[in-house]
Computed example of a mutant assay.
Amino acid sequence: MTSVLVLGGTGWLSGWLARDWIAAGAEVTCLARGTRPAPDGAALVEADRAAPDAYDGVMDRDWDEVVDISSDARHVEAAVSALADRAAHWTYVSTLSVYAAVDVEGADESAALLEPARPGDEYDYGRAKVAAEASVRAALEPRAAIVRPGLIVGPGDPSDRFGYWVARFAMAGDEPVLVPQTGGRSVQVIDVRDLAAFLVSVGRTGWAGIANAIGDPMPLGDLLEHARTVAGHTGEVRSADDALLQEHDVAYWMGPRALPLWLPADMNGFATRTNSVYRNLGGSLRPLDRTLRDTLADERERGLDRERRSGLPRTDELAVLADLG
C-alpha cells in the first residue's frame, strides 16, 4: 500500500488531497497542529511545525510520497532536512506568484523568479514560496514535483474571492451589480478538485519537474457573464473605471473592500500563464459552469449576505453605483 504523508491535510486544498489519496487506496498520515480533524480514514500526527521536534513522530518510517503546501520557507526547509532521506518522492505545492514579471503574457515555467526570501525579511508570499522551492530542489530535485497553482477555486474556498461574483449576482437578483472595467483583463482559475487530482497523479507516477497548474486564460468579462448566468441575475450590470473605484477605496484582487479577480491593467501577464505542462501530464479542467454551480450551492449554504474575507459589502457597492448616476 502506498504510504503518503501530507504536511497539513486538515485545510481546504490539503483536505481534498488527503481524501483523494485515501480514495486511491493509499495509507495517509496528516501532520498538523490538530486544531481541525483529519479527513476520515487518515491518521493525524499533531505537531507544531515551528518546533524543533515537529517531525519526530513521522521520522521512524519511509514514505512513498510527501506533500507540502506551506508558504513558510522555514517550515519547508525544516521538513526537507528532516524527511528528505525518508521520501521516495516529494511534491511541493508552490504558486504562480513566484514569477518576477506580471506583464508578460503566455510565460511558461522557465520564466524568471522573484528573489527568494531571506531570514529576517518582511513576509512576502511569492518570495517565501521561491525560497521554499529552493530548499526542495536542493535536496530532492531528481525526485520532486514542484506544482505552481494560480487562483484555486471551488466549494469551500476560504479566501472568498471566486465565490464573490456568483454569490453577488444571486443575492442582487433583479437589482444592479457593480463590476470593474474588464476590457483587456484576463483571469485563470483551477478547481480545487482538479488540482488535488493532479497532485495525486504526479505522486503516483513519481513525476519530477515544474508545472503551472492552472486553467486556460479567459477574459474577465466572460467569467463574470458565466457567473451571472449561473446565478440567474436579471438586473443591470454597471461598470466603473479604475479611477472611480480607487476614489472609493475599492481594492484589487482580494480583501474585504475588493472587487475580486480585478487586476491593474499592467498585470495581465499574471493571468495568462501557459498550462501546457499540466495539460500534457493529463491534468483535467472541469467546465467553468460546473465549478460555478457547485460554488453557488456552497455560497448559499454559507449565506449569500455573510461577512466575507474578500468582496465589496453590498452597502458600499450601492454607494459606488449611486456615484455612477
Rank of each mutant, 00 (worst) to 15 (best):
7 L>K: 02
10 T>Q: 08
10 T>L: 12
10 T>I: 07
11 G>S: 09
12 W>L: 09
13 L>F: 12
13 L>Q: 06
13 L>S: 10
13 L>C: 10
14 S>Q: 05
16 W>R: 14
17 L>Q: 12
19 R>S: 15
20 D>T: 09
23 A>R: 15
23 A>Q: 13
23 A>G: 13
25 G>P: 05
26 A>R: 01
26 A>C: 10
27 E>K: 11
28 V>H: 11
29 T>W: 04
29 T>M: 11
31 L>E: 01
31 L>P: 07
32 A>Y: 07
32 A>N: 07
35 T>M: 13
35 T>I: 12
37 P>W: 08
37 P>N: 09
38 A>D: 04
38 A>W: 04
43 A>R: 06
44 L>A: 09
44 L>G: 10
45 V>M: 10
46 E>H: 06
47 A>E: 00
49 R>D: 06
51 A>R: 02
51 A>T: 00
51 A>V: 00
51 A>Y: 03
53 D>G: 04
53 D>W: 02
54 A>G: 03
56 D>F: 12
56 D>L: 14
59 M>P: 00
59 M>E: 12
60 D>Y: 05
61 R>F: 06
61 R>P: 09
63 W>T: 02
63 W>D: 07
63 W>G: 13
64 D>R: 02
64 D>T: 04
65 E>A: 15
66 V>D: 08
67 V>N: 09
67 V>E: 07
67 V>P: 08
69 I>Y: 15
69 I>G: 12
69 I>N: 13
70 S>E: 04
73 A>C: 05
74 R>A: 15
75 H>K: 01
75 H>C: 04
75 H>W: 07
76 V>A: 05
77 E>D: 12
78 A>I: 00
78 A>E: 01
79 A>N: 02
